[in-house]
């Protein structure tokens, strides 16, 4: 009876995490008669009576309200089609594309061309996974210069850190501007190439060691070593 695993244990699909009705299945788990069973590969998180599995891998699943970095894949009459790094593409309509006035019959490639990266916000997702995005809002713009890298979407919360602590630490140490999309696309721009490369190296390190406790200390130590004497 009771819990069969501990907080932060790694569980695999089909593994029993709790026995009895004392615990409730949350995301990543399901109830099979008396048992709570995991249905994803991830870390156990216990919130009172609810057991949740925080996934370790997986593709991005679009959610309303997420700020993502997308890539323009098609330009149409009424807007742009944006790759969201998920299984589905999103639609950016003319009205949502810019705070500027876009005249009728304008050549839309003037604003965003194929291959451009943009930061945008998901405004609607239907049950059939038709996605609307918007670029109206602070900080939403076309991304110019810098570099784009993609990381595992499940690691994004660790890269950002609690209230942006990790990302602002990296920003400060490397002297770069970083924008992390919820979909795992990261835009990095700095004045020097070395700074950008160090940032990428650091982010890769966070990604690889995301499930380790004491990650922040490890990263700050690494950054200190790397930036010493500069």
């Amino acid at each position: 009876m009771g819990l069969l695993v501990q907080e932060k244990d790694i569980v695999v699909p089909g593994e029993e995490v709790a026995d009895g009705m004392d615990y409730l299945p949350s995301t990543g788990t399901y109830r099979d008669k008396e048992k709570v069973v995991s249905n994803r590969l991830g870390l156990v998180q216990i919130n009172g009576r609810a057991i949740k599995i925080v996934p370790l891998t997986g593709r991005y699943l679009p959610k309303v309200g997420d700020t993502i970095i997308g890539k323009v894949v098609d330009v149409m009459m009424s807007g742009w089609r944006i790759d969201t790094n998920s299984a589905y593409t999103a639609m950016l309509s003319l009205a949502e594309a810019s705070s500027d006035f876009i005249p009728k019959n304008a050549n839309l490639t003037k604003y965003y061309g194929i291959g451009d990266y943009i930061s945008c916000k998901i405004s609607n997702v239907t049950s059939q996974m038709l996605i609307d995005i918007s670029m109206r809002g602070p900080g939403l713009r076309k991304l110019t210069g810098g570099r784009i890298i993609s990381v595992l979407p499940t690691k994004v919360p660790r890269i950002i850190g609690t209230q942006g602590s990790m990302v602002s630490m990296i920003k400060q140490a490397t002297n770069t501007r970083i924008m992390v999309g919820q979909n795992g696309i990261v835009h990095i721009s700095g004045d020097r190439i070395e700074d950008e490369l160090l940032t990428i190296k650091t982010i890769r390190m966070v990604e690889e060691n995301s499930h380790i406790t004491g990650l922040t200390d490890m990263i700050s130590k690494f950054l200190e070593e790397q930036t010493r004497g500069k």
């Binding site: 699909p13 399901y30 994803r40 996934p55 891998t57 997986g58």
Partner: peptide, 11 residues
């Protein structure tokens, strides 16, 4: 499939 992070009731 499990490594790809898909929802699976078991292996």
């Amino acid at each position: 499939l499990a490594d790809a992070g898909l929802t699976m009731k078991d292996l």
